[in-house]
Design a protein around this nucleic acid. Sequence first.
DNA 1: TTGTACGCGTTATCAA
DNA 2: TTGATAACGCGTACAA
Lengths: 333, 333
Amino acid sequence: MNIYDVSEHAGVSIATVSRVLNGNPNVSEKTREKVLKVMDDLGYTPNVFARGLGLNTMQTIGIMCSDSSDPYLAGAIYYLERGLRSHNYDAILCCTGYDLDAKQKYFELLRSKRVDAIILAGSKFVEMRPKDNAYITEAASELPIMLVNGYLEGDNIYSTVCDDHAAMYGAASQLLKAGRRRILYLYTSYSYSGVNKLEGYKDALKAYGMAPCDELIRQCPKDISAAKELLVSLHGQGLEFDAVMTSDDSLAVGTVKYAHASGISIPDELNIIGYNNSILSQCTDPEITSIDSKVEALCTTTINTLMGVFSGVNVPSRTTIASDLIKRKTTNF
Amino acid sequence: MNIYDVSEHAGVSIATVSRVLNGNPNVSEKTREKVLKVMDDLGYTPNVFARGLGLNTMQTIGIMCSDSSDPYLAGAIYYLERGLRSHNYDAILCCTGYDLDAKQKYFELLRSKRVDAIILAGSKFVEMRPKDNAYITEAASELPIMLVNGYLEGDNIYSTVCDDHAAMYGAASQLLKAGRRRILYLYTSYSYSGVNKLEGYKDALKAYGMAPCDELIRQCPKDISAAKELLVSLHGQGLEFDAVMTSDDSLAVGTVKYAHASGISIPDELNIIGYNNSILSQCTDPEITSIDSKVEALCTTTINTLMGVFSGVNVPSRTTIASDLIKRKTTNF
DNA sequence: TTGTACGCGTTATCAA
DNA sequence: TTGATAACGCGTACAA
């Protein structure tokens, strides 16, 4: 069942069938109807491979993410896919894990599939050393690269980021204003957004005339019980803190559990602020105050930017979106 | 940059280049090396569209799910994508929502993309009325349809399901054995797995000589606070229950919050059992006993079955996987 | 072991 | 407004 069959049955040439197919106006209404009827009768569907070969595109975008089951990324993928589909693009998903070699391998794989663009979802795709990002900047000469919540400078590379620095700065400032003086910061990694969050935290302290101190800045795996255990251990060592901020809600959940286990009252003795405003922040008692990183806005902006790139419109290479602090019951300001 | 360029530079025919490309043994070692070197020098990558046109496949599988940000489905998508990629297949993701028309529309869309198979992830794709599933059974004559945690009878349709009935039956039986007599069941929908869970619950009661009673079987939106509010209201109306089982962990989280809000002690006064063993079940204090529906096993089995179908091996049209009860702190048996 | 020639199903150019 | 025909880049009989 192909365009020849249709043309034969309709008594026209394949060129006319193709024109009907693509809404070309240079077809008489009579012919158009005749062809459409034949298509319908025969149940004809154009072959996307042949079309792809001719046009050198299959309207497909590659989405890379480290782990699509992470609540934050799962949300991002959802919004990205819906956005792409509303513009008639397909999404090829690719979960890479965290290893640089693997990320690079999958990136090349997607390129070899001739996707029209690659979206890197999450802040785990920008490495500290510039040479480790060369594979991205080089590829950008051939197809647009979109970063969701990550920033990389380069031609044909577009970043949409959440203002993590401002978010952390603002939230930490509110804690300080409310009288908290020993704010422990728990982070998972030194990714693009990880660094920004940390700097926001530090800058808030400095603006308040306080020096950030290393013992209050701790790295921790992105895991509820790891966070809990770490805090229990720090508490046991005599470390004092009256507030905890985290780079991810899961660590904040761990903090709540630590407080429960240690008989520490929230928010009186301990304030907690999570990050991402994910469903996790609504699971605990008390519910967790969390910074909303605006995944949906991030993703729709990314898609809009990409469509702008495709249509040759001038688009910003970097868009920043403001985050919100969602106040719940682990803070009392 | 195509196969002709390579053949020219290497001084061989395109047939030979193609043979090298596809690992055909009928090429002298010398020629092979020469061709490979040219490919490398020229940075040649075969055009997947052209290949797809000739072979009528692009090694791509469509994955449909209602909502990829749901923790359970997000996990499923992760395992499915990884499994497919390990077999050199790409995954096109398609989030459909819950509307039948939309599901049907996207299904046809994927078919028109000529994917090699369609995976329906989650139990939301099998409708009660057989005629509403006709679009699936009919399509199955042209490509394999894989159901993850849903069952549909038909040629070329393969289902991998978790034994929800047995899981609910077993868990409810343990509650009964532990002395619980008023087990409230909270469910979200009458999907394939939803019905099985409900029957498992009822059958456990019957096996214990008790009649299931309607006032203890309640429908509730899949939402933490909706579950909490519902229980607060039922409690207010004087409904008595000493255990709650739910069809999803989110409802179990809501149940924990209800108990906290109402000063009811867990597990002494109230036992709670969730479903899916998702991260949500580890967020609360106490952590929630939950039925592990074995997403990973479900997904890898689905992929293995699909690969079996592709290679013409005889595979079961239905595979059942046993679930586990993960005991945590909301039960005391 | 290697090469020639055709088919795959479109889109697009050009002529009618 | 329509039609003939050449790309698009690959796989693969079949021939050599």
